[in-house]
Nucleic acid binder design. Structure first.
Lengths: 345, 345
DNA sequence: AAAATAAACGAAACCGGTTTCGGTATTTTA
DNA sequence: TAAAATACCGAAACCGGTTTCGTTTATTTT
């Protein structure tokens, strides 16, 4: 214990000389090597505890040739901070990583450099052992780059090259089939859809789920109700105006995410629609705030915490056994009925 | 350029032998030492570029005795993910740090270990050069610990010991004076207040701002309208029920944050109050989602991005010049009128 | 009791950089 | 032109650990 301000400056050499051993021996004693006598090991760990010795991370990592650090590069999201996904996700993966002795390094994409540049820097400077990739695109340059380098990573979301890399995803296709089916059962026929950017693979799958269910149910007789979106509230507003000026207009609208749904609801209200009486709205994401709306937003939801834990587990497995065949996992979202949908009038 | 999968494995020694120099010379050439001829320096940088040499971070940091990393330990927030503050804040500070060559290390508090333990581990294992502390309490054990260790950090929010450490804060007292004053000018007399947990210093200051303005305006004739809260929607609901069952009941309610405001609005609606006609509500945080409510939530807001940038600047200054006197900065929030308040009826 | 084996630790190389110090070769000064 | 100063680079120590290899001592084996 040091009385002074500075944190303990005990190095392994200090420990060694204190014990009358060499630092190599101390290191092996502390790391459970078998060629250390029980008595010595006990003595070493005891003195280490008393002196408050903690190995310097940088030195250990240099010697062992690993970083025990996982990188997360935040995708540049121009003003779409409606979603708490990122913070919850960071929380869950850092928790999971910490448990296994790994650290989480968070980087941002500052305007000057491209996104792939960030990955490149992190790889070459050996700051991380692997990556977690968020918001995958169908053609994803980050994935392309890391595959080319042979650098470990797991994506949250699928890509066009999903057969070549580990991934975790929510089954958005099934989720939107379910949601559409739910609306159909309530009696809706003209069900609108507001998508996300089509560059996102997930957006395509959600659209697919919706479209397939509509085609199967109404045998291609009801169409023209798909609108592009951009996963923001503003995008939802414009899409809703386009849909609601049609005649006959939709009695329900399915949205690619909750932010979009909020925009749709806002625009619909301004046009005089009452929800859910005159228009049912369903979102996707399960943001907590949806429960405080009036009416509370019905949405498709999944556990961010579980997703993060799963992804971390996959990545750590990959790091441990690089030769493993591709790992992937498809989890499912559940429809959380809260009140923004009902039978059509 | 390597054709194979592996990332470039060029070490400084490879560069040196390729150039016919020693690694010491190469290092100095690359780091701008004055005892290297212009010609040699040019040759070194050129070959380094061609071979794609990037110094291994771990080695550099070990040799230089620094980590170039800042730690952020996420405070354990039991189910309060209504706020996007954390993700936006992380985004802004990592951007600011990256620009200066620093990394951001994010840790979580896994149940087993206490929060201070996390800081202790990070300090002793020398993983970070400094910390950014979020959600300060009046008596903050994290601050106590780091002050004791003499370890650099900047807080977002003040503490009881703010005279002893660097801090950045939003002037919540003034903000709530302003908001109260705004409601007074609209004609409100019975203005309610729902606080945050009183262990947070910020919550106390917000309450103080509200209370002082009320006392000054109504000369202590109007009181009993303060309710405790917990910064969550649920807390807002119960507080609102307590306030609204009074007779006469408040015509406006000021909330310690937006999540609370959402809860207040929900409860008020359920009790039959129309907003803002029968009850004005004002929040604090400026969450983007508030703009999509009906009516849009009037709130006190400030730039998270600017806060993050400022805090990073303060911390880096501190690291560069440890002897500097305490640095602090008080920024102000602005009242964003959106529609959830109006004159009383 | 001598030889073989096992147990326990010391010595030294290594990870990949940075930095100090000292020694030539070259230029400047006297 | 000899001496002093300067420019430029090599050699080696160092950061704080880990790991391999070899040596000594203690224990078995024959």
């Amino acid at each position: 214990m040091d009385e002074r301000g500075k944190p303990s400056e005990v190095r392994i050499s200090d420990l060694a000389s204190e014990l009358g051993l060499t630092k190599g021996t101390v290191s092996r004693a502390l790391n459970g090597y078998e060629d250390i006598s029980k008595k010595t090991r006990k003595r070493v760990t005891e003195v280490a505890r008393i002196l408050g010795y903690v190995p310097t991370t940088q030195a250990r990592r240099l010697a062992m040739g690993l970083t025990e650090t996982i990188g997360l590069v935040l995708p540049p999201v121009p003003s779409q901070p409606v979603n708490t996904f990122v913070s919850e996700f960071i929380d869950s993966i850092s928790t999971a990583l910490n448990i296994h002795g790994y650290d989480l390094l968070v980087h941002s994409v500052n305007s000057e450099k491209s996104e792939v540049d960030q990955y490149q820097r992190l790889v070459h400077s050996r700051k991380v052992d692997g990556f977690i990739i968020l918001r995958t695109l169908e053609a994803d340059t980050r994935v392309d780059y890391l595959l080319k380098e042979g650098f470990p990573f797991v994506t949250h979301g699928r890509t066009a090259r999903m057969a070549e890399h580990d991934w975790f995803d929510i089954d958005g296709e099934k989720a939107f089939r379910d949601a559409t089916s739910h609306l159909v059962k309530l009696g809706h026929q003209r069900i609108g859809f507001v998508g996300g950017g089509n560059e996102f693979f997930s957006a395509q799958l959600r659209l697919k789920g919706y479209r397939n269910m509509m085609e199967e149910t109404y045998d291609n007789k009801i169409s023209g109700l798909e609108q592009p979106g951009d996963l923001t509230g503003l995008g939802g507003e414009t899409a809703a105006r386009n849909l609601l000026k049609q005649n006959p207009c939709p009695t329900a609208i399915l949205c690619a995410n909750d932010a979009t749904a909020l925009g749709v609801i806002k625009a619909a209200r301004e046009l005089g629609f009452r929800i859910p009486q005159q228009l049912s709205v369903i979102g996707y994401d399960g943001i907590a705030l949806g429960g405080y709306l009036d009416p509370p937003l019905t949405t498709l939801t999944f556990s961010i915490e579980a997703s993060g834990r799963e992804i971390v587990a996959m990545l750590l497995r990959r790091l441990k056994e690089p030769g493993l065949p591709i790992i992937s996992k498809l989890a499912s979202a559940t429809l959380k009925l809260r009140g923004s949908e009902g039978p059509p009038t």
